[in-house]
Computed example of a mutant assay.
Amino acid sequence: MAGKTVRIIIADSLEDLSPENLDKFRVRLRERKDDARIRRAHVEGKSPLELADLLVERFTRDRAVSVAVELLRAMGCSEVAKEL
Rank of each mutant, 00 (worst) to 15 (best):
L71G: 02
L22K: 00
R61T: 09
E70Q: 04
A68V: 08
K4A: 12
G76Y: 07
E79Y: 11
R40N: 04
L71P: 05
R63T: 10
G76T: 06
V43G: 01
G76A: 07
L17M: 00
R32T: 15
E50Y: 10
A2G: 12
S13T: 07
R73K: 09
D53G: 05
D34R: 07
E15P: 08
L84S: 00
E31D: 08
L54C: 01
K82V: 08
N21V: 08
V43N: 00
E79Q: 12
K33L: 10
E79C: 14
E31C: 13
E50P: 06
L84G: 05
E20T: 00
A41K: 10
V67Q: 05
R7G: 02
D23Q: 08
D62W: 10
R30N: 09
S66W: 14
E70V: 10
S47N: 06
V65W: 03
R63G: 11
V6R: 02
V56D: 00
I38C: 13
E44R: 11
S78R: 14
L17G: 00
V56E: 00
V6W: 02
G3E: 08
V56G: 00
A64E: 04
L55F: 09
E31I: 15
P19C: 09
D16V: 15
T60W: 04
K82C: 10
E57D: 02
G3I: 09
K33S: 04
D35P: 12
A74N: 10
G45W: 05
E79P: 09
E15K: 05
A41P: 14
R58W: 04
R30C: 09
A68G: 02
D12P: 10
R7P: 04
R39P: 15
T5A: 06
E57G: 05
D16K: 15
L54Y: 02
L71N: 08
D23P: 12
V69I: 07
R40S: 12
V80M: 04
R58H: 03
E70S: 08
V6H: 03
V56N: 00
K82Y: 10
K82H: 14
L51C: 02
I38K: 02
A11D: 07
T5V: 07
K33Y: 07
G3F: 04
R40G: 12
E50R: 13
S47L: 06
K4Q: 14
S13F: 11
E70N: 14
L22W: 01
E70K: 13
R61C: 07
A2V: 06
I38L: 07
E79T: 14
D23L: 13
S78F: 11
R39M: 13
M1T: 15
A2R: 15
D16A: 10
E31S: 08
F59C: 00
E83I: 06
A41M: 15
I10N: 00
A74C: 11
S66H: 15
V65G: 01
A41E: 14
D23K: 14
R32V: 10
R40Y: 08
I8R: 09
R32Y: 10
L84A: 10
S78G: 14
V80F: 09
V27E: 03
R30M: 06
V56A: 04
E70Y: 12
D23A: 03
R61D: 08
T60N: 01
I38N: 01
I38H: 01
E83T: 08
R61P: 03
